[in-house]
């Protein structure tokens, strides 16, 4: 029964949120469509891409045409197929990092707010410390020292991205735990864990989701930047690695640089507009949030 109630309130919150987004904001609606297209492309990349993105051919430096929509690169690889497959690696990587770091952030923030005292102090100092080293440099150095596999990069970035979430969740829990419904639950004899998991966190849910979305955009940019520098999984095609290669041939083929850049910009722009809209619906009076732009 209690669980049903929670989902009931969640549903009305979410539907009202999305109704507001949809009716008031054309840009947000377009962004949802763009996100949908990218998700679809990422999932069905194998069917959409006309060529194998890693297969070389004799058709090098072909201009964009009906046969090669976005042209071909220095080794005759189809740029359009690369962009299509790149959406998969970008989204997969950033969703992994965002969910993992979101989980760490929620755990740290909720624990700090609920335990209070020394635990709170220690966790918040730790958060401040992790915020200091610039993510890009840390990821660069760790990748140079330990290797650049997909898993390593996910782990490194997850351990640097949780800080904003921890602060947000802590602030939310601190304010929510003083509300009457928590008092009511306590009076009914609910345990502290139960109150945190089933009463407080569901109410912090919209904030958590918005923050995860902001993180996805930021991670996409950071990963592309690392790959542009040459740090990334060499067996996987991605927008960053295409740009890394394309910058050397910018005089011979503008398409090698322009199309992956446009794909990046479009996806991240859609994510930013959408989280912006969600955030202004959630707290109309506060300052705009920014995706922590890592690069």
């Amino acid at each position: 029964m209690a669980i049903l109630d929670i989902f009931g309130t969640q549903n009305t919150l979410w539907t009202s949120l999305f109704r507001r987004v949809l009716t008031r904001d054309v840009l947000a609606t377009i962004s949802i469509a763009v996100l949908g297209i990218f998700l679809f492309t990422a999932i069905s990349a194998d069917f959409i891409a006309p060529f194998d993105p890693l297969k070389t051919s004799n058709d090098t430096f072909q201009h964009p045409s009906w046969h090669f929509l976005f042209g071909t690169d220095d080794l005759g690889r189809d740029v359009f197929s690369g962009v299509v497959h790149g959406s998969r690696s970008s989204l997969m990587f950033s969703v992994f990092v965002s969910l993992a770091s979101g989980l760490i952030g929620v755990l740290v923030g909720a624990t700090a707010a609920f335990a209070g005292g020394l635990v709170d102090d220690v966790l918040m100092r730790l958060t401040e410390f992790v915020l200091i080293p610039p993510r890009f440099f840390l990821a660069l150095v760790v990748a140079a020292l330990f290797g650049t596999s997909f898993l390593y990069l996910v782990i490194i970035l997850s351990f640097t991205y949780w800080t904003t979430m921890a602060r947000l969740v802590r602030a939310q829990v601190l304010s929510l735990k003083e509300r009457p419904f928590v008092e009511a639950a306590t009076a009914l004899g609910a345990s502290r864990t139960r109150i945190l998991l089933f009463h407080i966190l569901p109410n912090a849910f919209p904030v958590i989701v918005t923050q995860i979305m902001l993180t996805v955009g930021s991670v996409i940019l950071l990963q592309a930047s690392l790959e542009f520098i040459g740090i990334g999984d060499a067996d996987r095609i991605s927008w960053g690695s295409m740009l890394h290669n394309g910058q050397h041939f910018i005089r011979d083929g503008w398409w090698m640089v322009v199309f992956p850049s446009l794909a990046l910009a479009l996806l991240v722009l859609a994510l930013n507009i959408l989280s912006d809209a969600l955030n202004s619906t959630l707290n109309p009076k506060t300052r705009p949030v920014y995706p922590d732009k890592a690069v």
């Binding site: 840009l27 005089r251 910009a265 991240v268 995706p291």
Partner: peptide, 25 residues
Amino acid sequence: NLFALLGHSLPAFSIGLLLLLFLSL
């Protein structure tokens, strides 16, 4: 605001490459 968001959504190297392409080359 839209241009600001666009600038915020492009990574530094993409902005650099596009400026290089159009204003320099």
